[in-house]
Simulated scan of single mutants.
Amino acid sequence: MFVILEKAVLGMALLRLLSGCIEMFAAFVMLKFNDVEKALIVNSSLALIGPAVLLITTAIGLIGFADQLSLKKLVWVVVGVGFILYGVKS
């Protein structure tokens, strides 16, 4: 009858919901300004939020999953996230 959610999953989902709300708010701000330059500034500021949300949600997931991962697999996950961030920035 009751659904018990893991704290890590709940934290990750709430952070993604917050990120989505910020994205929607930014879209409304762009529409309100109705100016390409201001919309580009708003869009550029969102570029800072995306990687931060990725890192934080990954960290929450790894903390919640750390007891089940070996050190070798944990290192591979961290390296993979590093590659993703490097690919996005380049």
Rank of each mutant, 00 (worst) to 15 (best):
residue 86 Y to W: 15
residue 18 L to Y: 09
residue 88 V to G: 14
residue 58 T to R: 00
residue 47 A to T: 00
residue 40 L to F: 03
residue 52 A to M: 15
residue 87 G to A: 01
residue 57 T to Y: 00
residue 8 A to L: 03
residue 46 L to I: 00
residue 24 M to V: 14
residue 61 G to E: 01
residue 81 V to C: 06
residue 3 V to P: 00
residue 9 V to M: 01
residue 54 L to C: 06
residue 70 S to Y: 08
residue 13 A to G: 06
residue 40 L to Q: 04
residue 42 V to G: 01
residue 81 V to K: 12
residue 8 A to G: 10
residue 44 S to E: 10
residue 37 E to L: 02
residue 77 V to L: 06
residue 29 V to N: 01
residue 79 V to I: 15
residue 55 L to N: 02
residue 49 I to S: 02
residue 70 S to T: 15
residue 56 I to L: 10
residue 59 A to N: 01
residue 34 N to V: 01
residue 56 I to Q: 08
residue 70 S to V: 03
residue 82 G to V: 05
residue 51 P to S: 07
residue 28 F to N: 06
residue 39 A to Y: 02
residue 60 I to V: 15
residue 64 G to K: 00
residue 89 K to Q: 12
residue 1 M to E: 14
residue 28 F to K: 05
residue 55 L to M: 10
residue 59 A to R: 03
residue 34 N to D: 07
residue 53 V to F: 05
residue 90 S to H: 08
residue 18 L to I: 14
residue 71 L to I: 13
residue 85 L to I: 09
residue 1 M to A: 05
residue 8 A to T: 13
residue 63 I to M: 07
residue 87 G to K: 04
residue 54 L to E: 07
residue 50 G to I: 12
residue 29 V to W: 11
residue 18 L to Q: 09
residue 8 A to I: 00
residue 47 A to S: 05
residue 76 W to E: 14
residue 3 V to N: 04
